[in-house]
Simulated assay, not measured.
Amino acid sequence: MAIGTTKTADALGLPTTVDLVTNSVQSFNGAAKVTWNVNASNNDPTLKIVQTFTVSGTVTLPNGVENPDNVPLETSVIVTVNKIPQSQMAATATSQETISENSAASMAIDGNPQTVWHTKWDKSDVLPQSIILHLGGTYPVDKVAYLPRLSGNNGIITSYNVYVSTDGETFTKVTSGTWANDNAQKLSTFDPTDASYIKLEATVGVNGWASAAEISVLQTETANK
């Protein structure tokens, strides 16, 4: 969840219903409504730091389900906000398609998984190619999340390097690896390090392109606790 997310159940992505199992071993999947008391949680969205907090909720039983033993109808969920807000980032790339469609680097940080960054369609820029995210500040980071394009598979990155920098000029490689050729979100983890810039370098991509629907950077969860 992004740092600075509004303090509401919807913004935090909390479920509106929960599963319920009764003493008679009846299961009611997603049938019990839950009301979250977000305001009582120890969360301050004005702080630009990692926060982990618990949100308590009250469950409403489905019709026909009784509670003769007066079991407390309470639940809770632990939420961690550690994703650096994309809204404060800027993105550049060594290759981007802006003629046949708008697949500029900025599409990878626009919060819309239906838009994509894509290297030039004519393949005049052969791999490896890179996208650089300016984080809008310096943060202790240890993860990059990569969401491939959701339609088709051209450009899905299957082999990569991740670099970090504090000045945007000198980059240090912190990890490399491979990802499966599918549309599921991928995660790259590395030792915690301070960074103002993250560079994701695609060394292999499907059919010789590189693309991304969304790229996110996560702060180290142990930071600022």
Results as ranks from 00 to 15, higher is better:
K7M: 07
G136L: 06
I99F: 07
E101K: 09
D142T: 08
T222Q: 07
T94E: 05
D142Y: 05
Y160M: 03
K186H: 08
I49Y: 06
S124K: 11
G111V: 02
V204I: 06
D110C: 11
W117E: 00
K83G: 15
L150S: 11
T172V: 14
T60G: 04
L73V: 11
V59Q: 00
E101F: 15
D182E: 08
P15T: 11
D44Y: 06
V116E: 12
A210Q: 00
V162F: 04
A104R: 13
L133G: 01
Y146G: 10
P45T: 07
A195I: 10
T166E: 06
T189D: 09
G208P: 10
A213Y: 02
V38L: 03
V18G: 10
N102W: 09
V81C: 14
A180D: 15
H134F: 03
D182T: 08
K173I: 07
N67C: 11
T166C: 00
K48S: 14
K7Q: 13
A11W: 02
K33G: 14
T115Y: 10
S95A: 09
V50C: 13
D44V: 04
L187A: 15
N224I: 07
A184L: 12
S95Q: 00
S41C: 07
N29S: 10
Q26W: 11
E221D: 12
T193Y: 04
G208V: 09
G155Q: 04
T203N: 05
V71A: 13
S188G: 13
A31Q: 15
V38E: 06
N63I: 10
L135A: 11
L12H: 09
S87I: 13
G136F: 05
A145K: 12
F53P: 07
